[in-house]
Design a protein around this nucleic acid. Structure first.
Lengths: 216, 216, 216, 216
DNA sequence: GATGAATGAGTATTCATTCAT
DNA sequence: TATGAATGAATACTCATTCAT
């Protein structure tokens, strides 16, 4: 009774990583349904049967692969959240933006998969993964905003939920503009170098500070 | 002259609409590539050849269908934009949000297709349609913000591009939250009644007024 | 009881000719089975039903069209054959070659159809048409060779059937080399101007004279 | 590595040959475009997917099949060409004719495919294969004629290119007459037994000897 | 544990032909 | 007489999955 993934995890590191890399590439390019197991094994040069031994089926492969990516995504959030809480809230927002940029720069393919998943309702495990990600993001933002309100860095008359909704919107769009050519809407974020992106992130944070902050 | 769309446009209204409705449904549910011409004609109870007579091919069908929807989407924007320009800017933003809500309420399937198209790079005609939509939106928002700045309704120190980026982000997320269950992130917008949505739109507009407006 | 082609023959000349021209083009380009009635009517801008009214079905159209062409092909043969019989045999061969060249220059599409038909066993009416053509050719050549032998222009020791076979082979190849690029085998006959072709025809005839003739 | 032909070549001999035989039959009967993969797999009793696994696509199947045949065709040419060069030229022509007859007797279906390809311009790989075949033939004939001229077996006043064109014409027609019923034009070569064909080949060679040879 | 041959329902698209208007 | 909408079987090709070796 060899449980599905056991065989895969016993593989030599190098092979294991090649398999995941190739599969991630395929899902990033084609989404779930258009991704082709045939193409994956052809490029890998391994037998089709092997992949099915490792992961049971297409969905098993995707779940393994994307689950790992989500786990990796959550780590940096925690770091910033746990940083000294009297750091300036808007600086932390800026750090968050850049942490997001770092993630999608390091894992552009994973981010592409995530974006496809957003509105592709029949992506398998979509609900599970999306709610996991959103929960992490919301929990993170809520804590930040909370602390900032307590320490008087955000105007008291601001509605908490609205602020979170707002920040979420802005962060999402910022990252999408960095990653998807047709979505940067003239902001010039796509394909920009790190320095340019840092400047934009700073400008955006400043803008938020004016809108939400207590400084006049 | 058996040229593609002519045949379709000669059809009795009722049939023409059934065809479009069924096809829109299919694309909304499955996106472009997973949409199945077979399923469409089966549900319609017409011959496969007929559909190809009407639209030439799958892409022709999609183009016809989505092109019409985009045209319909642009109309209300123009109306609001051309409204008396000394109407309060934030009121107009609120109207815009609600116009958007009206559109996605009237054409939820089209909006689902649009959302899928956003990150599905190989959606055919994606670039054409997206740029058309974005152009219409940006032109619209830019004019509104411009007028609001001139008439002193928006703080003079606000960066124009940032403001547009911002408003765009917020409007998009608001509409998405209205339309996609897993994206409303606790705002309770999905499946809410019109009244609730109006309240939320009002609250959001108020929030924007505090951030961007000149009133203190 | 409107017999098939009656309707067609009542059409105005111009239209009738356009129909035949367009159909000939299609058959020449694609052979019989790959020829598409759809494409023909689309290019003509007439209703599909009309074509079927005129000719009953695809085969009827082809039969009508190619039958006419064959009739036209036979005419010049007769002229040369009936020319004064004491004309030099080899000169008459040369005239025949050039008459053939004239025909395929005037009706290149018909010749292309004929060539396709040669080895496409399931070309409809193939046997009927081919035997008609071959019979005309053979009858023609046999008479020429016969007269030439009687008048002592061809060596007496030549076998009649062999000579006919021979001349047929050579004439066929010559015309094919004029009409089909990849078959001219370096002779440069394809796309050559009339003058060049006349020279080649003359050279070939001379060659035949040496092989078959009585002059030393 | 699931790369196309590998799978096929690993098949048991018997099956491999059945597949090729059935496919060759189909192409011989219907040409390329009218040949049906469906029919082939139905007759073979194998899954459609299998055939595509073996050859990638229809063209791949055809290329494999016809490419092999062309290779086999070239072999006997070489043997005769390399035979002792002071063998009588006209005897070698006779041997060539019979070698050709042997080939089309052994591979009648391949020869039928070849004939169809001749005038079917959109036969895939037509140019590649035809030029390969023509090159082999021309090279072969040129060498033979050359040697025959040097050793004085052919009259010196004969034009080399004309002679080759001539011999090519005659050989082609001879083989066609052996293989295609409607093309034997009363020579009775089609379906004749080997003995009859040998006699005809001998007669034809004799005829050529009279036309081209130096003996009186 | 790995292989890779086999499967067959699935895909979009084309076609000649019919027939009510 | 002309039209052109409807048909449905045909086409080449892809796919995730199974299983004997």
């Amino acid at each position: 009774m060899t449980s599905t993934k056991k065989t895969f995890e016993n593989l030599p590191d190098e092979k294991r990583e090649r398999v995941l890399a190739e599969a991630t590439q395929e899902f990033a390019e084609h989404g779930y349904h258009q991704a082709s197991i045939n193409r994956i094994v052809d490029r890998l040069g391994i037998a089709k049967g092997s992949l099915f031994k490792y992961f049971g089926n297409k969905q098993g492969l995707f779940e393994y692969l994307f689950g790992h990516a989500v786990a990796q995504f959550k780590k940096p959030l925690k770091v910033i959240r746990d940083a000294n809480s009297d750091t300036d809230f808007f600086e932390r927002m800026e750090m968050s933006l850049l942490a997001g940029v770092d993630f999608i720069t390091a894992h552009p393919l994973v981010y592409r998969i995530y974006l496809k998943m957003l509105f592709q309702e029949n992506f398998p495990l979509r609900d599970k993964f999306l709610s996991e990600i959103r929960q992490a993001s919301a929990k993170y933002l809520r804590q930040l905003v909370n602390e900032a309100m307590k320490s008087g860095q955000i105007r008291a008359d601001i509605d908490l939920e609205m602020a979170i909704f707002h920040l979420n919107s802005v962060m999402d769009h910022f990252l999408q503009a960095c990653a998807v050519p047709s979505l940067d809407g003239g902001t010039g974020l796509f394909d920009a170098d790190r320095k340019t992106i840092e400047n934009k992130a700073h400008a955006l944070t400043d803008f938020l500070r004016h809108g939400l902050g207590t400084i006049s």
